[in-house]
Design a protein around this nucleic acid. Structure first.
Length: 423
RNA sequence: GGAGAGAUGGCCGAGUGGUCUAAGGCGGCGGUUUGCUAAACCGCUGUAGGGGUUUAAAUCCCUACCGAGGGUUCGAAUCCCUCUCUCUCCGCCA
């Protein structure tokens, strides 16, 4: 959520920032709702002040005296009025809150202009993605692929997009998860193993609710949600809390399975390992001092990149333009790995700075040392990394003439051998 | 799942309808005293929203918050209902 005071005092700044994101928001309507709410608030508060004053006076009177009874009669009318106006105020407040939730976060000055993904800037390019790879084919066409990534049986047991990983398929997933976790811990992140079901309050704080409800699996009858990313439980760890300034920055990482209904996806995007309903991912989350969040964003991106380089995978970094930024992000980099068989880039990480936008909604603050007052932290997150797409790129880029896949040196200690077989 | 007991400020803890503006203590911050430290003494102490003043901040005024949400009442930390969580015992269980 954006700072309501910023909107009140500098609506033009907000207007310009929304234009940069190419979103359509009726700010005048939001401002009108805000003004109406504040007027009602003042009226109700004046009534309540009157009630409190009368209450103090009555406490000093002997009960049952004529003066006392007169007061009771008088305040009965006020009481009814307060109740009526409080109901209206509550409605106005909800309207105001809902209106504020339609206002997106502001794009940072360093975000490139542009309405569509075509204006994303290639920030950097690593590795020889155009090197000739004669054996490269889409990973789902590799002979034996179905044996160790068994989509058919997964569909029978659960549904499309829930594969079984078997033998070397299971082993490579486990190796990647552990490699990612170890690398992140080495980079200073504290490992966390969070709940993978969360309640509605948590899903709301990180903006999955109310709008993206249809993207999550929901349990009955407890109304718990299967997490679409570890960002949800990780970020909510400090929800409604005040941390000490000296504790910042806080770095956390977590491996979890992630669950996404992916309603509306189709075509080549969903072939093979490209897009699954259940997949494994290691996520990074940072809580930082507001003055540091852009430096921390670059460090976060670098932490994810380092892992791709250790795996010897060609990749590129995109700096997302205003129009391709999410609703709640101020700045975002995507890491895309080259998939030699499909001859396309696959997104394996998305590193974002939310500034105070997410922290305001989740009430995550730090106590400023000099003033002693609570201030909102800045939150950031990024993947390091998403397993299936890294795996897809690995299978396609490292496929050898004998039909096996060469395991990158850094991963061999985790996988336990130098080649993956489809037998 | 069953039975019982609980939830009050950073922490402990008193408070069973009206100066609660929540006692008292601990902790923390500031001060006095003081070779230093400690002790003693004095003062201060949470969060959120709104208003007013201001270049701005501080100060000031109002309101809300005693696990959450409803209700009763002129008036609720206190009475009633629902829910959540914690603890003890029983049951079940990897």
């Amino acid at each position: 959520m954006l700072d309501p005071k910023l909107l009140r005092e500098s609506p033009d700044i907000v207007r310009a920032a929304i234009a940069k994101k190419h979103l359509n928001v009726d700010l005048d309507a939001v401002l009108a709702i805000d003004a109406a709410w504040r007027t009602q608030l003042q009226e109700v508060e004046a009534l309540r002040a009157k009630q409190k004053a009368a209450n103090t006076a009555m406490a000093a009177l002997p009960k049952g005296t004529p003066e006392f009874m007169a007061k009771v009669g008088e305040m009965k009318a006020v009481s009814g009025q307060v109740k009526e106006r409080e109901v209206q105020l509550k409605e106005a407040e909800e309207k105001f809150r809902d209106a504020m939730l339609t206002v997106p976060n502001l794009a940072h000055a360093s975000v490139p202009e542009g309405p569509t993904p075509e204006q994303n800037v290639v920030f950097s390019l690593h590795g020889a993605h155009d090197a000739p790879r004669p054996h490269a084919i889409p990973h789902w066409e590799i002979p034996g692929f179905d044996k160790i990534f068994d989509f058919a049986r997964g569909a029978k047991v659960t549904g499309a997009g829930f594969p079984f990983y078997v033998a070397d398929g299971a082993r490579i997933v486990r190796a990647l998860i552990q490699f990612f976790l170890d690398e992140n811990v080495k980079a200073g992140y504290t490992e966390v193993n969070p709940p993978i079901l969360v309640n509605a309050a948590s899903a709301t704080a990180t903006s999955q609710l109310p709008d993206k409800e249809g993207q999550m699996y929901e349990t009955v009858p407890d109304r718990l949600f299967a997490i679409p990313t570890a960002e949800v439980p990780l970020t909510n760890f400090f929800r409604d809390e005040i941390v000490e300034e000296a504790a910042l920055p806080i770095y956390r990482c977590a491996y979890t399975p992630c669950f996404r209904r992916e309603a509306g996806s189709y075509g080549k995007d969903v072939r093979g390992l490209n897009r699954l309903h259940q997949f494994d991912k290691v996520e990074l989350v940072k809580w930082v001092h507001p003055t540091m969040s852009y430096i921390e964003l670059d460090k976060l991106r670098e932490d994810s990149e380092r892992i791709l380089r250790k795996l010897d995978l060609p990749y590129r970094v995109l700096l997302m333009c205003g129009g391709d930024l999410g609703f709640s992000q101020s700045k975002k980099y995507d890491l895309e790995v080259w998939s030699a068989g499909q001859k396309r880039w696959l997104e394996v990480s998305s590193c974002s700075n939310f500034e105070a936008f997410q922290a305001r909604r989740a009430h995550i603050r730090y106590r400023a040392k000099d003033t002693g007052k609570p201030e909102l932290v800045h939150t950031l997150n990024g993947s390091a990394l998403a397993v299936p797409r890294v795996l897809a790129a690995l299978l396609e880029n490292n496929l050898e003439a004998d039909g096996r896949v060469r395991i990158p040196a850094a991963l061999v200690p985790y996988f336990g051998k130098e080649h993956l077989s489809f037998a």
